[in-house]
Simulated assay, not measured.
Amino acid sequence: MVANERGQLLLIGGIAVAIVVFSTILFAHSLAVTDGITTTGSAETIERSADREASVERDLGRLAAETRGDDLDGFEERYENALRNYTETHNRVVGGSSGVYLNAKLNESASLGTEVNQTNPPAQFKKPTGGGGAEWTLAENTTQISVFKIAFIDLNGPGNRPTTISVENATSEWTMALDRASPGSSKKQVQVNGGDVTGCSGAASRSVNITLYLHNGTCLTDSTSVTFVPFTDQLKGPYNITIKKGSKSIVQYRVAAIGTFPRSNYASPVARVNYPVIPAVDTTYDTPSASYNRTVLVEVDDG
C-alpha cells in the first residue's frame, strides 16, 4: 500500500516538474523579448509593455495547444492548472527581476466556440430534435474546428445506403461514407471521397471499433492507426457540415468549432454547450508604475 502511494506521489511530482519546466522554457522566450528594452521614457515604457503582453499571449496560445491536443474532456481544468503554473513561474522569474507581476485566469463566458456531442448512449446519426432522416445540418459557417470525432459503432438496418458526412465550402465538397463492405455484408467500411480508406475498413468486422478524426485525417481501429485526406487539407473554410442518411449508422460524435450550430437541431441526449475553441483569458499586470487588466482571446498555437 505504501509503495503504491509513493508511486502515485512520484507520478504526480513528475507531472508537476514537467509543467514547471515547460513554463520556464516559455519564459526563456519571454525574457529575450522584454529584457532587450530599456525604460528611459514613457514611449519606451509603453513599447516595453506591449512587447511583454504580446510575448505572454503567445505563451498562452502554446499552453492551450499543449493542454488540449485532441482531447476535449477536462481541457478547461487542465488549462486553468497550466495558467496557474505559468503565473507562478512568471512571478518568480520576471517579477523577481523587474517587479512586473501577472495573474492569468480562464474566462469561459468570454471564450468563443461551441461543442455538440452524442457520446452516451450511441445512437443513429440523425437530427437530435427528430426528422432529418434524409439530411440535416450539423453546423454552418464553421471557421476553426478543434475536434471532429466520430466513433462508427455499428450498421443500422438493411440495404446498402450509407450514412454520408458532407463538408462543403462555397465551391467544393469533401465526403465520408459510413457503409457496408459489400451489399448484405455485416462488415463496416469507411470511404473518403468515394475511395476506401485502406486499413480502416473492408476487413474490419462488425464488432471492431472504428474511431475517426475528420479534422486531422486519422482512423483508429482495435489494431491499426491509418491516415486519410482530411477535409481541412482539401477545402478552405468556412465549412457547412451536413449529415445524409444518418439512420443507417450507429455512432458517437463530438464536434467543437467556431460556427453556427442551429439550436433548433439539438436536444437531449445530444449536448450543445459553450466550449473555448478560442479561450478568453483575464490577465492582470501589476507593475511598479501601474496595475491594469485585460481580457485577451488566445489564438491556440498548434504548430
Score class of each variant (00 low, 15 high):
57 E>C: 07
82 A>H: 01
46 I>S: 13
4 N>D: 14
40 T>E: 11
65 A>M: 03
16 A>L: 11
57 E>D: 13
12 I>C: 08
51 D>Q: 13
47 E>F: 15
29 H>Y: 15
68 R>E: 04
19 I>K: 05
91 N>C: 01
38 T>Y: 10
21 V>Q: 04
34 T>E: 13
17 V>Q: 15
49 S>V: 10
14 G>R: 11
66 E>F: 12
60 L>D: 00
85 N>A: 11
39 T>H: 01
14 G>T: 01
8 Q>C: 04
93 V>G: 00
48 R>W: 15
59 D>R: 01
29 H>A: 11
14 G>S: 14
32 A>S: 14
58 R>C: 03
83 L>K: 06
11 L>E: 11
87 T>D: 07
59 D>L: 00
24 T>Y: 07
91 N>A: 04
30 S>G: 06
88 E>T: 13
45 T>G: 05
97 S>R: 11
11 L>W: 06
61 G>I: 00
77 E>W: 05
90 H>Y: 14
70 D>Q: 07
6 R>F: 08
77 E>Y: 06
10 L>Y: 12
50 A>E: 14
69 G>H: 05
5 E>R: 09
64 A>P: 10
11 L>A: 13
13 G>K: 09
32 A>G: 15
59 D>W: 00
83 L>A: 05
7 G>L: 10
50 A>Q: 14
39 T>A: 11
10 L>V: 14
74 G>W: 10
96 G>R: 08
9 L>I: 04
9 L>P: 00
16 A>T: 13
32 A>W: 09
69 G>L: 00
41 G>Y: 11
95 G>T: 02
63 L>T: 03
71 D>W: 02
40 T>H: 10
22 F>H: 02
30 S>L: 12
50 A>V: 14
4 N>H: 07
75 F>K: 01
96 G>W: 08
72 L>Y: 04
92 R>L: 10
70 D>R: 10
91 N>E: 07
71 D>P: 00
78 R>Y: 03
76 E>C: 06
71 D>N: 09
82 A>E: 06
46 I>V: 15
10 L>P: 00
79 Y>E: 03
27 F>T: 02
60 L>V: 03
56 V>I: 15
21 V>P: 00
26 L>A: 05
61 G>W: 01
29 H>N: 14
36 G>E: 09
75 F>Y: 03
4 N>E: 13
62 R>W: 01
25 I>L: 15
14 G>K: 12
31 L>I: 08
55 S>T: 06
56 V>Q: 08
95 G>C: 09
27 F>V: 00
18 A>G: 05
71 D>F: 08
80 E>F: 02
67 T>N: 01
95 G>R: 09
41 G>P: 05
10 L>F: 12
80 E>R: 07
27 F>L: 14
56 V>Y: 09
54 A>D: 08
15 I>N: 05
53 E>P: 02
6 R>L: 10
7 G>W: 03
3 A>V: 04
